[in-house]
């Protein structure tokens, strides 16, 4: 994407040292920080793994088939995200709206799975207070859920915005930045799914 498109029509052409838009650098910097946020949370989980003094223990209640489905849904949302950005760049507005709606829907389905899972675990006796597994598991996956929720809200806002005002070239950048965030949240889930769920059954 060239420089002019990045800044839209409203701002005059201003000098920039690189061809990367400011806002994209900002998002990359935030993601750099977010890596460390999740790094600290995952580290907490790993350090406390196997140190719970009472149950329920992970292997007893983690439901791999269920979470595999929700993981697949989340990964597919990333695929739709790519399609949505491509459509917007091609100026194909109906498809852009369709795919963006798809991303939000898939994100919401993932969150639905998470709510269901949290409820089920809670009924089986896992809680924030009960043992270390509960504390670390809920804080880690809960933080990830908050990230997904923010992503869904953000993309919904972009989608609704596309009906309220004319679409300008800057919107492609907005969507690309939201997409960076969305893909990142997906990648983090792959790590969490591996470290929390899969490793338990190796």
């Amino acid at each position: 994407m060239n420089h002019t498109a990045a800044h839209g029509v409203a701002e005059p052409l201003e000098h920039r040292s690189t061809n990367i838009p400011d806002r994209k650098i900002l998002m990359w910097a935030f993601l750099g920080s977010d890596v460390m946020f999740f790094g600290a949370l995952i580290a907490s989980y790993v350090v406390y793994k196997g140190r719970s003094l009472t149950g329920p223990y992970p292997a007893e209640i983690l439901d791999i088939p269920l979470t595999t489905i929700s993981t697949f849904v989340l990964l597919m949302s990333s695929f739709l995200m790519v399609l949505a950005l491509h459509a917007l760049r091609e100026n194909d507005i109906p498809r852009f709206r369709l795919w963006t709606f798809g991303v939000c829907l898939f994100g919401a389905i993932f969150l639905g799975f998470q709510v269901y899972e949290f409820r089920a675990f809670f009924q089986e006796g896992l809680s924030l207070q009960g043992n270390l597994f509960g504390s670390t598991f809920f804080l880690l996956t809960g933080t990830h859920g908050v990230h997904v929720s923010i992503g869904v809200l953000w993309l919904m806002s972009l989608l609704i915005g596309s009906y309220l005002r004319p679409i300008i070239r800057k919107d492609a950048l907005n969507l690309e930045i939201a997409g960076l965030y969305w893909h990142f949240v997906d990648i983090v889930w792959i790590v969490i799914f591996t470290v929390v769920y899969l490793v338990e059954f190796v």
Partner: peptide, 15 residues
């Protein structure tokens, strides 16, 4: 009331 640094439930001060 979580257990991150709650020694009674296995939390580690060194963490």
């Amino acid at each position: 009331g979580t257990n991150f640094f709650n020694v009674v439930n296995g939390g580690l001060p060194i963490m």
